[in-house]
């Protein structure tokens, strides 16, 4: 029974061929294969015994999708999707075939770039020059050195840095959105003032990265930018709701966080 369960990585066109030895989750890594469903195919592997979200399994999921998505589009599944048996995959993929084909079309030649912005912590000097409040607390802490005074001073610095970073984010976004075909806000990540994903034509990745580097330079006193990608298009596949069948959902339909590309 358990041997027939399948780990599902993603959905591709039926005419794809996986490179021999494409490996997936588990240790030893399970071999990935294609499960054809009409014009589509699911990329699947056996489910290793005791599988859970370990680092190497997350990385294996990610690496497989990156490799498969390098030459042709793939609809990446969220990590950890397991079907009880092959017929469940066939039914699920087959019943939404039209939507999946359209989504593959939309992602063809495109990739996801994820940008996170954190508060720059290394330019306290500039802040001290500009912020009268911090200077006042600093003078107090110097006159009467105390643990509490230092905590208050440090907190004021941290808050002011966060405020400046958040303001800068609004200035950074429009330029990047102009270079992308899609734009989705990611889940909140503690410590980040911004977490967004862009759908970028593969040919435009270099230009996009250059733009991020330019902005990172320009805003280095306020923001620390981290760009990840090219990534599987996790944020640009139809995000299924609970309950409703995938077939009834418009392909472009995304969560409320989605905003159209461009400014």
């Amino acid at each position: 029974m358990s041997t027939s369960r399948l780990y599902v990585y993603g959905i591709v066109h039926a005419d794809r061929v996986l490179p021999p030895g494409t490996s997936g989750v588990g240790r030893p890594a399970a071999l990935a294969r294609l499960l054809p469903v009409g014009e589509l195919a699911a990329v699947v592997s056996d489910v290793p015994e005791g599988l859970r979200a370990r680092r190497r399994d997350l990385m294996a999921h990610q690496a497989l999708l990156t490799e498969v998505g390098a030459e042709a589009p793939v609809l990446p599944m969220r990590f950890g999707m397991v079907a009880q048996r092959a017929s469940v995959v066939e039914d699920a993929v087959g019943s939404a075939a039209t939507a999946h084909l359209a989504a593959l079309d939309r992602l063809d030649g495109r990739t996801e770039m994820n940008l996170k912005a954190m508060t720059a912590q290394s330019h306290v000097e500039a802040l001290v020059r500009d912020d009268a409040d911090v200077r006042r607390l600093m003078a107090t802490a110097r006159r009467q050195p105390s643990y509490e005074g230092n905590v208050r001073l440090g907190q004021a610095v941290a808050e002011a840095l966060d405020r400046r970073a958040s303001e800068s984010v609004d200035e950074v976004l429009p330029e990047l959105r102009a270079l992308a075909e899609g734009f989705v806000r990611g889940p909140d990540v503690p410590g980040c003032v911004l977490n967004v994903s862009f759908l970028v034509p593969k040919a435009g990745v270099g230009r996009f990265r250059a733009a991020v580097e330019h902005l990172a330079d320009a805003y280095s006193e306020r923001l620390e930018l981290r760009l990840a990608g090219p990534l599987p298009c996790y944020s640009f596949v139809p995000q299924e709701g609970t309950g409703s069948g995938p077939a009834g959902r418009p392909v472009g339909g995304r969560t409320a966080e989605h905003a159209p590309a461009g400014s």
């Binding site: 599902v8 993603g10 959905i11 489910v47 599988l51 859970r52 979200a53 680092r55 997350l58 990385m59 999921h61 990610q62 690496a63 990156t66 609809l75 990446p76 599944m77 969220r78 990590f79 950890g80 999707m81 397991v82 079907a83 009880q84 469940v88 039914d91 699920a92 993929v93 996801e112 994820n114 996170k116 990611g186 889940p187 990540v189 977490n195 994903s197 990265r209 991020v212 580097e213 990172a216 330079d217 620390e224 930018l225 981290r226 760009l227 990840a228 990608g229 090219p230 990534l231 599987p232 996790y234 944020s235 596949v237 139809p238 995000q239 299924e240 609970t242 309950g243 995938p246």
Partner: peptide, 30 residues
């Protein structure tokens, strides 16, 4: 700027792998 190539550092994309990507309701999750 920090550029994370390819699969990259896990934490830069952890929430995408876990909270984004396609979900098919009938599948179970590890």
């Amino acid at each position: 700027v920090a550029c994370v190539p390819r699969a990259g550092t896990l934490y830069d994309v952890l929430e995408l792998i876990l909270d984004r990507g396609m979900v098919i309701d009938i599948f179970v999750r590890v």
